[in-house]
Design a protein around this nucleic acid. Sequence first.
DNA 1: ACCTGAACACCGTTCAAGT
DNA 2: ACCTGAACACCGTTCAAGT
Lengths: 232, 232
Amino acid sequence: MARETLNREQIVRAAIELLDAEGIDGLSMRKLGQKLGSAATAMYWHVGNKENLLVLAADEVWSEVRLPDVPAVGWRTAARELMYAARELCDRHRWLVRVITTYVGYSDGMARFQECAYETFETAGFRDADLDWAVSTPFMFVTGLAFMTSTEAAEVKERASRNPAAQSEEEAAVVAQAQAIAAKYPRLAASGEAQARRGESFSEQVDEVFAFGVRTILDGLEARLGARSDSV
Amino acid sequence: MARETLNREQIVRAAIELLDAEGIDGLSMRKLGQKLGSAATAMYWHVGNKENLLVLAADEVWSEVRLPDVPAVGWRTAARELMYAARELCDRHRWLVRVITTYVGYSDGMARFQECAYETFETAGFRDADLDWAVSTPFMFVTGLAFMTSTEAAEVKERASRNPAAQSEEEAAVVAQAQAIAAKYPRLAASGEAQARRGESFSEQVDEVFAFGVRTILDGLEARLGARSDSV
DNA sequence: ACCTGAACACCGTTCAAGT
DNA sequence: ACCTGAACACCGTTCAAGT
C-alpha cells in the first residue's frame, strides 16, 4: 500500500511518535525521513524547518487536554484540574515544556487552555493585571516542576531511587557524589536520611511536591483575594 | 606572555564568558578551544566532556549568590531574598536553568544555597516531608519563570514589546500570528488589549508576575503553617 | 602530564535538478 | 506541486601520535 504523498499532519504525527519514544534529542530530520520513507529534506517543503515542526507538534498534543466546566465546578477545583492536566500532559510528552518555553509558538491548542485559565481566575474574582498574574503564577510552578521531571537527570534520579541495580557505574558514581556533597550540610544530610527512611521513589516524591505546591498556591491566591476585598 | 598550560579553572571561566555572551548554544568545544588558543580536543583532558564542563560552570556561578542571615531577618524575608537571589542569578546567566535541570550536577554551590533554604523553612516551622515540600515549591516557581525568560522566545517578546522596529520581518510575522490567535478568544483578547494600554515591556510584566508569585507562595506557605498548628 | 590532528558519526539546511 | 541527492557548515568525541 503505497502512500501517495507526504502531508503535514502525517509528518507531525510521526514527529510526535519519535519525540515521545526517544525524547527531544531523538528527533532529527534524517530519522524522521527514514521513518516516513522519504529523504530528510522532503520535510522542509511541508513544515519549513525543525523549529516550526516542533511548534506544530506542541500544538497538536495540547488538544489532548480536557478542560473543566468552570461554572459547574467552581474556580478552585477548576484551577486544580487545570494544573493537574498541564502536568499530566507534560509527563506524557516530556519534550513539551522545552518546546513551549523555547519557541514563540502561540498555538490554538495553548490559547484554548489559557482562555479557560482566564475564565477560572476571573470567576475567582481577579481583574485586570491581577488576573494576568493569577493565571501565570500556577503555570510557572507547573512549568518548573515539569522541567525538573522531563530531563535525563530525572530519569537518573528515578533509577537511583527505584532500583539502583539498573544504574550504570558512571551514573551510580554521580549519584554517590551528590550524596557526599549533601552529607556536608547538616539539614540536607538529615533530609536525605529521612527520605531514605521513607523509601519513596523519586517520582513519588515529585508527586507529593506537586500536590503540596498546588494547595499552597491556591491558598496563596485565596489570600490575595481576601486582601483585595478587604482593601476595597 | 605565553600561558604555560591550560587548567580547569581557566577553561571553566572561559566557558562562562562564552555562555553569558552567546547563550547555551553558543558554547562549542571548538569555539572554546579557539578562545583559549588550543585545540578543541585539549579540553577533554581537563574537563572530561561537555556535560561535565557545564556542570562545573553552573557550580561556579552559584558562588555569586549572597545568602540571607536567616535568624536575623526572619523566615519570610529570608525566603523572599532567596527567591529573588535565585531569579537574579538565572537572569545574569541565562543558560543556568537549563544546565541545572538537565544534568545531575549536585554541586557545592547549589548545596550551600539549598541548605540555607532548609534553614529558612525550618525556622518558619516546617518539619519532615513538609519541610522538603516547602523548600521545593518556591523553587519550582522560580525555575519555571526563569525558564520562560531565558529562551530565545523571551528575547523575541521583549523586542516586540519594547521596540518593534528592531524585529526582523520573520519575527514580526510570528508575533502577529500569535496576536491573531489570541484575538479569537474573548478573555485573551481583552487581556492583550489591556496589556497594550498599560504599555509595559515584556520584562516589566515578568517582574510583576514574579513579585505577585512570590507574595502568593509565601502567603500560601503561611496558610499551610496555620493549618498545621490548628490540627496539632 | 599535556596537547595536536585526523577521523568518525552525527547534525540542520540550501539548492539545483528531477518528475 | 512535490521530492531527491549532493553539498555546506557545523557539532561532540575518540584516539593514536607527539612532546
